[in-house]
């Protein structure tokens, strides 16, 4: 199988899954248990994504002090109710600064 076929098949497959969620029958979506589940899914998946992006590189767990400090700064900024873009800038800035210092 050529790389082109793999690229296009992956693209189409990903699209099919996205569409599959949106066209889920009303009967299923109206079930209160399904509602509670799908309501919580974004919190679960996005938190898992944060954890993996912060702590893993591929299959290896790694503790990158600069990255974790950047993320910690983001949490502090959020607790102080800083605007979204400020949160991103200070987080990246702290990580970059610590790396510049050789951490």
């Amino acid at each position: 199988m050529s790389t082109w076929i793999a690229v296009i098949a992956t693209g189409l497959g990903c699209y099919a899954l996205k569409l599959g969620g949106l066209v889920t029958p009303r009967r299923v979506l109206d079930d209160p248990r399904v509602r509670r589940f799908t309501e919580l899914v974004p919190v679960a998946l996005l938190t898992a994504l944060i954890a993996v992006q912060a702590l893993a590189d591929g299959r290896n767990l790694e503790f990158d002090a600069a990255r974790l400090a950047g993320l910690g700064t983001a949490a502090v900024a959020l607790a102080l109710r800083a605007p979204f873009l400020v949160v991103l800038v200070v987080a990246a800035g702290v990580a970059a600064g610590l790396r510049l210092l050789g951490l």
Binding site: L49, Q53, R67, L71, L78, A91
Partner: peptide, 12 residues
């Protein structure tokens, strides 16, 4: 520090 942008954005 671009690797922090993803997790920081999702955290926000």
């Amino acid at each position: 520090g671009l690797d922090v942008l993803g997790p920081a954005a999702f955290l926000g």
